Amino acid sequence: MNSTTQMYVDLLYRKYGKTQLTRQELAETLEISVSSLEGLILKGDLPIRYKRIGVSQKARYVFPIIEVANFLAFADAA
Rank of each mutant, 00 (worst) to 15 (best):
R60V: 06
Q6E: 14
T5S: 02
L11H: 06
I66L: 08
L12Y: 02
K15F: 00
S36R: 14
G44L: 04
D76A: 09
G39P: 09
A77T: 15
Y8E: 11
P47E: 14
Y8T: 06
L26F: 06
K18W: 02
P47T: 09
A77D: 15
L11P: 01
M1K: 03
Y8N: 05
G39A: 13
V68E: 11
S35T: 07
K15E: 00
L40T: 10
K58Q: 11
A73W: 05
G54K: 03
E67W: 02
A78N: 13
D10S: 09
I65G: 13
R14V: 01
T22I: 04
E25R: 00
T5P: 01
K58E: 14
S56K: 14
G17Q: 10
T4H: 04
A69F: 10
V62I: 12
I32N: 09
F74I: 15
D10T: 05
E25F: 06
T4D: 13
S35I: 04
I53T: 12
L11N: 07
L42Y: 14
L12N: 00
F71T: 11
E28A: 01
G39V: 12
I48L: 15
I41E: 09
K18I: 01
V34W: 06
S3Y: 05
A27L: 11
N2E: 00
Y13M: 10
V34R: 02
T5N: 08
N2A: 05
G44R: 14
E25H: 03
Q20Y: 03
N70S: 15
D76N: 12
K43F: 04
Y16V: 00
E28T: 08
A75R: 15
T22P: 03
Y8F: 07
E25M: 07
Q20R: 00
R52E: 03
M1T: 12
R23W: 01
T29A: 06
R52G: 03
L42H: 10
F71G: 00
A69R: 05
T4S: 12
K43M: 12
A77G: 13
L26K: 00
K15C: 02
T5I: 04
I66Y: 13
L46W: 10
L26Y: 03
K18C: 04
S33I: 09
T4E: 10
G39S: 14
T29N: 02
D10P: 00
L37C: 08
G17C: 08
